[in-house]
Design a protein around this nucleic acid. Structure first.
Lengths: 219, 219
DNA sequence: CCTACCGATCGGTAGG
DNA sequence: CCTACCGATCGGTAGG
């Protein structure tokens, strides 16, 4: 049995990765275990950064802002991150992987193509509107991001969207609708819902129902 | 007859304001004539700033970037602008006013509610996708903008969207669709089209037709 | 994890 | 319209 496993305390983070207490063994193995095992402190840094990137965007979020959220000075953050660019890419990757996992799990047993698409939409909307899973720094608007970073974000996002491309391909469409355009509009709608939705008049379920209705999905 | 009128050369800018050659009379009267009469140089500055804000967002666009585009050093720009914040608000206001004017002119003679909504959508899409009228710094994503600026942008944008609110109110909807949600989804779709559309497979007219079809608008 | 700092860049100003 | 500069802040590093 591995040391980090026998150490007892182990938590499952929102995105499916393990969180373990910060001990020497873990610090030494961090690199070789890739991104799978994180210390509590690392998890804190990622969550704080995700929240700020999501709220203000890449350019308007400073390393010192992120540090302040977790009680560190800016420079000290570099013990946990390689660079601001790499941090953003990492958060984006983890958020999309977590979303993809949740969506694939939710549609695994669904046979009807319309029902599968409806379910995928509902789960993505849940993720985008969940204030706790601020883990989603809005997959759009890469304008303020350096070019070299943007190409990596776009590549990852395209992979994620393939899930929806497949679902849209299989689902029935209104007459004369281009499936590529439809998929883009649908995903934009789901991904930007957090910019306007505020709990109150409509519940999350009602918003989901409205979106499915506008997009002619029998859910 | 007014001096600026008799000076002969007068151009109509994209957003409907007049452009006149830079002469002493004009410079002296600029303030009292409000924002209606602009020197060529001012127009240049606004267009360059609009293009950069639109391409990179507020936080990632520097005053020096804008200056470079018009052949000035950063500091020299302050002869034409009051502040970066004020510049952004001004561009946003002018772009929305120009869009509103074009849309209202286009739907003026249209009686059928569905036809009117379809026309408004087509014109807004044209504006958002016209590479020349980069005058539109994407009316969404105010995340990187200072709070004091954002409230002014939102206020102006809400006024603009009232045109669409009225059109959606009058138009027939699919059964069970909430008109407020519908309007938000429709406007988001039109306003973000420039983030994904590239001329090639589909023409602007085809994209418009697709959007109208997805949103069940008989155009 | 902090102190202390680097060079670069930011929005903006003074003075001509 | 430029030179020359202000104080603030940026991402990032060294050394402990």
């Amino acid at each position: 049995m591995r040391a980090w496993f026998s150490s007892g305390l182990r938590l499952l983070a929102l995105d499916g990765s393990f969180i373990v207490p910060n001990d020497r063994y873990n610090q030494e193995r961090e690199q070789s275990l890739a991104a799978k095992v994180l210390t509590l402190r690392e998890e804190e840094v990622l969550n704080a950064a995700a929240a700020l990137f999501g709220a203000r965007g890449f350019a308007a979020t400073s390393i010192r802002d992120i540090g302040e959220r977790v009680g560190l000075l800016g420079g000290s953050l570099y013990h946990y991150i390689k660079s601001k660019d790499a941090l953003f890419i990492r958060i984006h990757d983890r958020a999309l992987q977590a979303a993809e996992d949740r969506i694939c799990a939710a549609i695994a047993g669904v046979q009807d193509p319309s029902q599968a698409l409806a379910t995928a939409c509902r789960v993505l909307l849940e993720i985008q509107l969940d204030p706790a899973s601020l883990t989603m720094p809005l997959m759009n608007d890469f304008r303020a991001v350096p070019e070299s970073v943007r190409v990596q974000l776009v590549e990852r996002r395209d992979a994620f969207e393939q899930v929806f491309a497949d679902l849209v391909e299989a689902a029935p469409m209104p007459a004369g609708v281009d499936r590529v355009v439809y998929r883009i509009l649908l995903l934009t709608t789901l991904n930007t819902a957090s910019t306007w939705y505020r709990p109150g008049r409509l519940s999350l379920e009602e918003v989901a129902k409205q979106i499915l209705r506008v997009y002619s999905i029998e859910g």
